[in-house]
Design a binder for these strands. Structure first.
Lengths: 232, 232
DNA sequence: CTATACACTTGATTATTATCAATGCGCCTT
DNA sequence: AAGGCGCATTGATAATAATCAAGTGTATAG
């Protein structure tokens, strides 16, 4: 009984990752069902790592509840955050011999884990799905190119504006209010700026009336159109 | 006769793209042979576009001679260069419904063009190869993540250092001397800095004795080890 | 209820980078 | 050879962002 409910939750998560790409593809639904059978749930405490740089990629991971962060750190102490992952997002898909980043739990979370080998085997049964698998990677690539564009062409304030629009879209669930699961330092490391610059960006947006900051992590976008202009 | 020679050149280019990823994979050699049969060569003058943003991706492209640049421009006139492509590099692999960037010829060049649909059909004959296809995309993704790391964590001077090390590696053919096919503006747009900052970076490296600038585009790395330190 | 710790904010100063403005250099044309 | 054109360099100044240094909550433990 409890297992059945779990499988439903897992299928929902899988559909949110793959569903869009495999829509109207023959066998997509059956493929997701089989994948869900092989999925395991693992629990992580805030700050724990799902995997680390240089680990051999054996699984793909999908947060079912809670948030992850993909990051790369150097010996000298600097860190680049590549992405924030929320419910239904995907990690570990296109890695080859080893991960080139670590995945860290931003909050306590439950993560779905699926063996890449098993997924490969299931693909053999659903060739139409396998052919479209590539689209998923292509989508991730295009998201990273967007980020690279923003990093190269936008000022610190603009980058923060883009970030908040993205968070509103992904966390707002149709409203303009959302709770950020990451610290100012995490945001700064994602956007390539200092913690202080990130903080000043929040303060300026608040002063200009584009957002409110209910608590450090609870944000409301008051004027989305102005924020879009601000970000460009 | 002339055709045969062309096919040899094409196979060499294809092997340099795919060979590393498909090494020791069953049917890899036959796959590349079939691919080469379907390859067309197209000639482009400097400044022409191979494809443009929002075009439907029908082909993959591999420069056989000359260089390409992948870029995205905005209405407001800013531009991000995502990558420079030289002989044997690959473009257009993981695009889905449309390209998210344009490919522009940096020099006069001959580009190999292969239909994605035909490649898909050939994959059906070589399932072992098809399974590893994904590795190629994964490799591209990891290169872009490296670039994102550099953009987020390094200063303008360090980014230029990284760029020159990359160019030496890719264009130097074992020596420390190479000819850059792109302008200072192209480099600046790739590294997310102004033309003047890029130029000052070159001048400083020259003054510090890490490189010589024979002409604007002809560079020699004098001290690679120092340059590596400079870039970190 | 107070002390403490931690994260965030704000202020002052410095460093980096962009912008504006000449100037220089090679190349092509005449 | 002179002029002009397209890039690159260099200089001066302004804008942006990092760093250093206090403060300000806010939550938690005692």
């Amino acid at each position: 009984m409890s297992l059945d409910i779990n499988k439903v939750v897992i299928k929902t998560s899988l559909t949110s990752c793959f569903g869009n790409h495999f829509k109207e593809v023959e066998g997509a639904s059956a493929f997701i069902d089989e994948l869900a059978e092989d999925a395991e749930e693992i629990s992580l405490a805030q700050g724990e790592y799902v995997f680390k740089e240089k680990d051999v990629p054996e699984y793909i991971y999908i947060p079912e509840s809670g948030s992850l962060m993909l990051e790369r750190s150097t010996a000298s102490g600097s860190r680049q955050v590549f992405a924030f992952l929320f419910t239904g997002n995907l990690a570990g898909l296109s890695e080859n011999v080893s991960y080139s980043f670590s995945a860290k739990a931003l909050t306590n979370c439950v993560v779905i884990r699926i063996s890449r080998q098993l997924m490969q085997d299931i693909f053999d049964k659903y060739p139409a799905v396998a052919k479209r698998y590539h689209d998923v990677t292509g989508h991730i690539l295009s998201l990273i190119l967007d980020q690279l564009f923003i990093m190269g062409q936008k000022s610190a304030h603009q980058r923060l504006g883009h970030f908040l629009l993205d968070m509103e879209h992904r966390l707002g669930r149709g409203t303009h209010k959302f709770f950020l699961p990451m610290s100012r330092q995490d945001i700064a490391d994602y956007l390539g700026m200092s913690l202080e610059t990130a903080s000043r960006g929040f303060s300026k947006l608040k002063k200009d009336g584009l957002i409110t900051i209910e608590s450090n992590y609870q944000i409301t976008v008051l004027d989305k159109e102005k924020l879009k202009v601000y970000a460009d």
